[in-house]
Simulated scan of single mutants.
Amino acid sequence: MTREELQSAIQDFWDEAFHCSKHEISDTSKAIALECMMDAAKQELPLTLEDLKQMEGEPVWVEASGITKYGRYAIVDSVYVEDKILYLRRDYPCIGYGELWLAYRSKPKEENT
């Protein structure tokens, strides 16, 4: 699922849940469900360099863009946002982050095609 598909699904839920009079769901329940959906969506999306900067010392799943079979877990060592470089502990630097490399909180689920 792409970022755009996730954003569209969240927007559809928002529109349906908060603007349709057919539902008898409380606003609190709707807000909780929406928050859970957004948290789940965040788990599937690539981390931004700003996210990674807050995760120094933590494990992430790293893979070359489009080459998932060489993905691996690594520890975030440091991040240089301006240069788009993710440094991993005892590993190669991921130069061109966001274009050539991506990192996730956990290994992405494989899509059934």
Rank of each mutant, 00 (worst) to 15 (best):
T2I: 07
C94T: 00
A33H: 04
R3D: 13
E99H: 07
Q7F: 06
E5C: 07
H19R: 12
A9E: 09
A33T: 11
P46I: 00
M37P: 00
M1V: 12
K42V: 11
Q54D: 14
L6C: 05
S78W: 06
V79W: 01
K69L: 10
A33M: 12
S21G: 09
V76M: 03
E16H: 05
L86I: 02
L47M: 06
L52N: 01
E63D: 07
K30W: 03
E58Y: 13
R105T: 09
A31H: 04
T48K: 03
F18N: 10
G96F: 05
A31K: 06
D83T: 08
M55F: 02
E44Y: 04
A17M: 10
A17C: 10
A103N: 04
V79F: 05
L45R: 06
S8F: 10
G96A: 04
S29Q: 12
R105H: 13
A9K: 11
M55I: 02
D91S: 14
D91E: 14
L45P: 05
S8E: 14
P108M: 02
A31C: 03
E50P: 03
D27V: 10
V81C: 09
R90L: 09
Q54F: 09
A31W: 01
I67G: 00
S26D: 07
A17Y: 08
E24Q: 14
M1W: 09
W61P: 02
D12K: 12
I10P: 00
C36R: 15
K53R: 11
I85G: 05
V62Y: 05
I32W: 00
D83W: 03
Y97V: 04
Q11R: 13
S106N: 12
Q11A: 13
A40G: 12
R72Y: 11
F13R: 02
E58F: 09
G66C: 01
L86W: 01
I25R: 12
A9C: 07
A17L: 07
L86Y: 03
Q43F: 12
M55G: 01
S21H: 11
E50L: 09
G66V: 03
E44L: 14
I75Q: 05
D39S: 15
Y92D: 14
H19N: 15
E4K: 10
E110A: 11
R72W: 06
R72V: 02
E16A: 13
S29C: 10
F13Q: 00
I85M: 06
L86K: 03
K42W: 09
L34V: 00
E63H: 05
F13W: 07
A17I: 06
Y80W: 14
R105L: 13
R72A: 11
R105K: 15
V79I: 00
Q54G: 09
L49D: 02
R3G: 12
D27A: 14
G57Q: 02
A64R: 10
V62N: 01
F18P: 05
V76W: 00
A74D: 07
E99A: 11
M55L: 15
M38W: 00
M37L: 13
Y87C: 12
D39N: 15
E50H: 12
E82F: 06
C36F: 10
T2W: 02
I25N: 07
L34E: 08
F13V: 02
H23T: 11
G66S: 03
Y104L: 05
W101L: 04
L45M: 15
Y104T: 04
K22A: 15
Y92M: 14
V62D: 01
G96E: 06
H19V: 04
W101V: 01
